[in-house]
Structure formats: C-alpha cells, structure tokens
Design a protein around this nucleic acid. Structure first.
Lengths: 203, 203, 203, 203
DNA sequence: GAATAAGCGAGACGGTACGTCCGGTCTTCAT
DNA sequence: ATGAAGACCGGACGTACCGTCTCGCTTATTC
C-alpha cells in the first residue's frame, strides 16, 4: 500500500511557492541543473514536502506549466480559437500567437524542458500530452472541423494530420533551432498547408 | 590557454570502445540514467579518457551517433536520395525509410536523447544540427530543387519550408508520441504537403 | 559563515561505526592506504557523513584513538599513576606498561599514524598533544612533583624536562625503530635518568 | 627479472633537478601534497625518469636529504665531532647546532617528512636509519667512548642508551612540538643526562 | 661512420580516491 | 499532526595523481 497523503490538509502556500520556484529556477539554470533541493530552498520548503506530492522534478515542472497556462487563460489572453469565417486568417492569427509565446522567455525554458523530458521519459510524455498538448490540439481540430463542415476543406480531410502539418513544422523549428521562428514563417506555413506546394494538384 | 590533448596520440581502440559502450548503454538504461562512469566501466576505460576528449555525455552520444550514421552509409543502405522522376513516390520512399529508422530500437534511444538534449542545450543543439541534421535536410532540398527545375513545383517554392513541412510533422509525432508513426502517415503527409488540404487553392 | 551541522541530531550509531572501521582498517592496510571511502564502506555509511563531522582521515583517527583510550580507562586498566613511595619502581612500572602498549598491535598502527601525521600537520599535531599527549604527561609530572616534595628530587628539578627525558628516548626508539623496545630498556632508562650517566656528578 | 637501468647512462642533470625540485616542493606544499607529477614538472623531466630511478616519493626525498647533508658537510660546517676534553661542553655544542638545524626551515620540512614517513613505512624507516641516522649516532657514540676511556663515564656505561637519552628528548620536542626547542633546553638536557635528576644517586 | 640501443621529455592510458552535490528516505522539532 | 529543517545512505560527478605504457628525439657506444 502506498502512502497517500491527505490532500485536504495540503498547504496551498507551499504548493504555490514550489511551482513558482520551479519556474523561476528552470529559467535561471536550465532543466539539467534544476534540482529538487534548490527548488525546496528557494520555496522555503522541506524537501519532503516536494517528494510527498510529486514523483519527480519533471512532474513539478508539468504542474507549474499547467498553472502558468491556467493563469494565462484567466488573464483572458484568449478564450478559445477565433472563428471569423476566414480559416487562413484565423490559423495565421493563432500560429503567430504561438510563435510569440514560444519565443517569450517566460515560457520558453519550462516548455523546452518539458518537451525534452517528455521525449525521453514516455510516462511523463504521456501526461504532458494529455494535460497540455491535446487540449490545445483539440482547439485546432475543432476549428478545422467547422471549416470542413463549411465546405472549405474536402469532406475526407484528415483533421489530425492537418493539425500536425501546422504545428509540426513550427515545433520543429523551435525545438531544433534550424531557422529563426517568425510571423512570416507562420503565414507561409498556413498558406502552403492549405494550398500545397505542388504546381499540379495531387489527387 | 586551455590544455589541448595531443590528438595524434589518441587511442582509437578506446575511442571506439567508448562510443560503442555509450550506444549500448543508452539503449539499455535510457539517457537520464546513462552515466559517464558506466560508459567508462563498460568500455574498459578510465573516466579521464572520456573527459579528455568529450565535454559531456551528450557530446559522446553525438559522436557515437555520427559513427553509427557513418556505418549505416558505409553499409550502402542508401547512397543518396532516389530520383525516379516521380517526386511523390521518391519522398514517400524516403519518409517511409525514415519512419522505419526512427522506430528501429537501435537508433531510437540515442536519437531521442540527442534531440532532447539539443533542445535544452543550445550549443549541443547547434552541433547536432550542423553534423547530423543539416546534411540530411540538404538531401531533401536537392531533390526538391530538381523537381522545381523540372517544373513539378512552382518556381517560387520555398524549398526549406517544404522540407520542414515534411520532416516537421514526422518528428512531431515521433518525439511527442501523439499518434503512432506509420508508413500510411508518411504517405498521407507527402500527398497533403504536395497537394494542400484546402478544397479551393489558396493563391 | 561556515555550515555547522546540528550536533544534536548526529547519529551515534554512525559515529561509532566510523571510528571502529577506521581503527580496524588502519591496522589492516596501514595509514597511507587508509581511505575515507574504505572507512565509509566498512562502516556502512555515506562518505558525506564522514566529511560532515571530520576534516580529514587523521582527525577521524584522532577521535578513534581517543575513544580507544577512553575504553581502556573505563576497563580499569589503570586509574592513575601508581605511588608506592618508590619513585624508580613506579616509573619503571609505568614505562614498562607503555612499552607493552606501544608494542600492542591494536594500538601501534593508529598511534604511529597519528604521531607521524601530527609531525607533518601542525594543527593536527596541536590537537593530538592537547587531547592525548598532555593528559598523559601531566600524570608523570604529578608523580614527579610528589617525589620532589618528598625530597627525592632536587627542589629546582625541571619536572617537564624530566618527563621528556623519560618519554623522549622511549618514543625515539619506538618511532624510529633504531633498537628493540624492551622492559630492560625502560628499566635502564629510569635508572640513568634518575642517576645520570657521568661518573662524577655534574653540578 | 627486474629491469635494471644502466646507471652509467644516467643523466646527472636530471637527477639533480629532481632532487632540487623535491626539496623545494616539500617546503612549499608539505609532504602529503607533494606529488611525483609536480616534481617532474618542476624539474622539467618526464615522470618515467623518476620512476626509473626511485621507487617512491619518499625515496626521492631521502636521496635529496642525503645530497643536502652531503652539501652541508662539503661546506665544512663540521668535519667531525668536537673533542675539547670537556664532554659536557662538546655535547652542548653539538646539540645546540642540532637544535639550530632542526629549526632551519631549509631542513625542517624534508626532515619532518622523512621521519614521519619512516615511522609509518618500516622499509623506508630502515633505510632512513641506515643512511642518515646511524652515521650521526655513531659520531655521538664515538665521542662518548672516548669519554668513557678517559674515565669520565663509568666503564659499564651503555653508550647507545646515553646517545638516545640525548637525542630522544630533543627529537621528541621537535617532532611533537610539545615545547619550544631552544639552546637552553639543549644545555639543561646535557647537564641532566650526565648528572641525573635524583637528589640521591641511584646505584 | 652507421647502426643500434639506451635514457630522456612528453603525455595518453587504465585506474583509485578525492571531496562535492544531489536523490530519495527518515527523524526531530516547532507551530 | 503537518511541515521546515536537515541528517542519513548511496551513487555519480569532474579532478588529481598513481604507476605503466608508448611515442619521437637526442646521445653514445659498438660493429
């Protein structure tokens, strides 16, 4: 039987302090040099208080990122995917915003850290997908579904594939730093995804 | 002045043993539990011999992967990008091969490890790009250039963008494990990249 | 400000295990081949637990010797310097016992190690003197003072010099191994110290 | 079969450089932090050149001290034990000189180092005695023998014991630093050794 | 006089131990 | 009776040296 601490008695003050410290430290020293001890010290918390509630530093960071995402939403930065009827414009709008976010130093370090950690640790990756990634993908998919219903996309369009054609190249550039990540890139990407690159349409 | 060891007197036997041990161990225990000490022990080598020639375990793994890639080439698995004249077929062929490689357990662990480490460590990432990624991308770009010259692509096609539209989604699925990575996915991806997803062509 | 660990929370079990292991190992492998790692391993203790409480292996050995001396006393081997009224006999008794102790393999290795280390490291030497040597010398001095008060020694006798005339040659033979260390030597030494060696008394 | 290098081909320049470097370094960093590598570097010599001719750093230091003692002699500091007919005066003269030498920082570090190392390592100790200590003791013994023949000492005087009664306390103070080492101490020691400390002569 | 072999400076190598840092567990004390 | 504080065992870190082992390069005989 695993000890399951009583969540009701949990100190919210400590919880917040830990998440804040984790975010701050991952930005300062990077994921690899991020240590539980440093988080505990910065948060003014005993190590055990971290180990009691999280299994690893990655898990702490995941929760911290969720909290960060929650805050961003609460601040009303965007309450859903835009739908002006113009699919290309809407996608460009969102992809530009994503570019901005990925380049915002506040988000960059934890996002890179989590993505990298998830790539290596399947279990963490699964939770990362479930909690952070999929909700985002679902928004794209919903918008595309509307477009498909509106006849802007072929009826047999693979929505999932389309979403990944948009986010894949973006993530690729961001993660691997092969080229600078710009609004122009986001625009061109949307255009080529919707229109294709071939001169003669492939069936 | 930094101590620069004399590369002429380097033991090639040790170098190989270290790279082999690193590849074997990263497959067995994963990147996070991979230790320099274990590599040294497995290779029958003093730790200092590793530290003398590489700055980090990531760097060892990069060299190991380069050696692995070198071997693969020498074994004549493919001496260049196919060019049958049928662009879609050629791309599908290569992307299917890439899918197979990414799923081959021999390559998977070090590839994930390097990609993740490079995402977090900019300097390592730069070398990873330069030595492993860019040469691969260049092959795609060359094939696409041929196609563009043959009139199969618009004259103003952004070749780089196109390459990333092919490899981005593939890498995305592989790294984040959002969906299974299959030949069918590779085929559909090539079709949609070339043809676009929109019903009506965007200008 | 140096980190001062909380002595109140110190594990006495670990402390004892470390001292025991140090004594055992110094006897087995000698001082030069004695390592902190081996002590930690033998004691079933983390290395940090040694480094937390002692600055060097010599300091560990000093504490171990103090503990050993404490045990010897507790076992009632001698609760003070004998005083039968016969100074020469008393000194011979104690010096013979000292000879026996210096030749007892249980004490020899740590005693040699500490003496040698103290000779080289002034700070350690000072603590060695203060904690182990001086208390012993004080006993001799007290007995000699009694003798002086009883008129067996000249009123202006330098007690300290006398003590060192007794222990100096003994220690010299023991440490430098110039000659075998025997009871006969101890007896002759006492006689010559008390009586002098010259045929005609020097004023 | 052990490799016996050809002594005829030995480089005297290297030999001297090594001994000088050893003496200099033992004074600077102490015996424990003295390393073969540092000696080699300081002497501008390959490590193998040291290992070829000496089995350990202690052996190097022993040779270095012998060379130092040889130089001192050559410089004519004393070509034998004085014999003015006044035994006490002669002994005081030599013991005072010994005190001065033991306090001379040029000799102190290597002398302490060798004595301490010899105390711990019996084989080294034996060679230390044979090559450095015994020749010195023999000089004392010779002078005392002359005195005994002259009737200044009892015919049955144990010369060896007497020598050790002189050098033992001196060495004791020097090595253990129990008290300052002064000319006055040397004088008092000679007086008490010759005359004894007891008020009434012990037979 | 050339050939050959030794000592030599240099330093890479397989190792061992160093002293430090941190992971994860367990205990103590204060609130 | 929770949580901060931190001691504990363990294990990897990156460094310093150990003693051995090639390397070329002087020297210095020996044929």
């Amino acid at each position: 039987m695993t000890k399951t601490p009583d969540a009701a008695r949990r100190s919210d003050r400590s919880r917040r302090a830990i998440l804040d410290a984790a975010l701050a430290l991952v930005g300062e020293v990077g994921y690899n040099k991020l240590t539980i001890e440093a988080i505990a010290a910065r948060a003014g918390v005993g190590k055990q208080t971290i180990y009691r509630w999280w299994p690893s530093k990655a898990a702490v960071l995941l929760d911290a990122s969720l909290a960060l995402a929650g805050e961003a939403e609460t601040e009303g930065q965007w309450t859903g995917f835009p739908d002006t009827g113009d699919l290309a414009a809407d996608l460009k709008h969102v992809l530009r915003a994503t570019v901005d976010e990925l380049c915002d130093e506040k988000y960059e370090a934890p996002a890179r850290a989590l993505t990298a950690a998830g790539a290596t640790d399947p279990e963490l990756g699964a939770r990362f997908n479930e909690r952070l990634l999929e909700p985002q993908l679902a928004l794209y998919e919903a918008r595309l579904r509307t477009a498909r219903q509106a006849g802007q996309l072929a009826p047999d369009t693979d929505l999932r594939l389309t979403v990944e054609m948009l986010l894949g190249p973006l993530t690729y550039r961001w993660l691997l730093r092969t080229q600078p990540l710009t609004h122009a890139f986001a625009d061109a990407l949307v255009d080529r995804v919707l229109g294709g690159v071939a001169k003669v349409t492939v069936p």
